[in-house]
């Protein structure tokens, strides 16, 4: 059992190294994200002029939502995992996983965990540098339960993000070019994950519908727990739905893997 885990520990360590190789890509990405944060500050700052609350939250709480989401994103989002998996399939790199006693999904998720650890810590650098400026906009609720529930919510959010990316990568078994699929899903995730605006500001019916979609649990749900946009009962029932989505997506990933391998022909050596 321990020996089995050891394989993935090595995968994790390799992931850390390759994460560090791409440190400049992450640095560039975090600079873009903070410029995007300036956009959110200007837009919402202007929207709040002349009123103290939007959807029951003041300007500081709203900006805290965007700042929190931005930082969390570097810890839990799948960035280019779908491309990497797609490349593995197209280049025939997965062939070696078929021959060795290592599970491709677990291998990939170990690398993903390592990469997010690196990107998350790197994103903290600009955040800490900007903290003297951001400080006055931060306003977190004080309820202890929020931080307790945020832990499983964040863990499952990361797994959901990864599994969705994994499923998109699996499409390479059927399609030559999956870039358009990925960008389309990225657009859907960006909006329904709450990165464009807090989902609770949508009309109530749309907000209710979004709650039953997996995207809600990718970013919005953990962020909303931490920044006080959900009450305890909603957070608890949300965790249940999040778990259901996670299991469903894991099932889909396994199904696509099995079906995909049936179509797959290993060429060359």
């Amino acid at each position: 059992m321990l020996a089995a885990l050891d394989k993935y520990r090595h995968a994790f360590l390799v992931g850390l190294q390759s994460g560090l190789v791409y440190r400049w890509n992450f640095a560039v990405r975090s600079v873009f994200s903070f410029i995007h944060l300036a956009y959110a500050f200007i837009l919402w700052g202007a929207a709040f002029a002349g009123q103290s609350a939007i959807g029951g939250f003041d300007l500081r709480q709203t900006l805290t939502y965007f700042i929190t989401m931005l930082v969390l994103q570097f810890f839990i989002s799948a960035f280019n995992e779908d491309y990497q998996i797609s490349e593995d399939i197209r280049n025939g790199l997965i062939n070696q996983f078929l021959l060795k006693p290592i599970n491709y999904f677990l291998y990939r998720i170990s690398v993903f965990a390592a990469a997010r650890l690196v990107s998350g810590l790197l994103a903290l650098i600009p955040f800490v540098l900007l903290l003297p400026f951001l400080w006055k906009y931060l306003s977190f609720p004080v309820d202890g339960w929020r931080y307790l529930l945020a832990v499983p919510a964040l863990a499952m959010a990361a797994l959901i993000q990864f599994t969705i990316a994994y499923c998109f990568g699996m499409l390479s078994f059927w399609f030559l070019e999956i870039q358009s699929f990925i960008i389309l899903s990225f657009a859907i995730e960006t909006m329904l994950g709450g990165q464009v605006f807090p989902l609770d500001l949508m009309p109530p019916l749309l907000y209710q519908i979004s709650k039953y979609l997996p995207y809600y649990y990718q970013m919005y749900f953990p962020t909303a727990i931490i920044t006080g946009r959900l009450d305890q009962a909603t957070a608890l029932s949300g965790l249940l739905l999040q778990a259901v989505w996670l299991v469903a997506l894991l099932g889909l990933a396994e199904l696509l893997w099995r079906r995909g391998l049936r179509r797959h022909t290993a060429v060359g050596g």
Partner: peptide
């Protein structure tokens, strides 16, 4: 590919329009 990319762009535009309509549900002027 053409259909997919058209959809991608269309969706991004919809996101921007939705952002406007969501904010204006809560405010009269920006």
């Amino acid at each position: 590919d053409f259909i997919m990319w058209s959809l991608v762009e269309l969706f991004w535009m919809t996101v921007n329009i939705l952002l406007v309509s969501v904010i204006y549900r809560h405010t009269r002027e920006i």
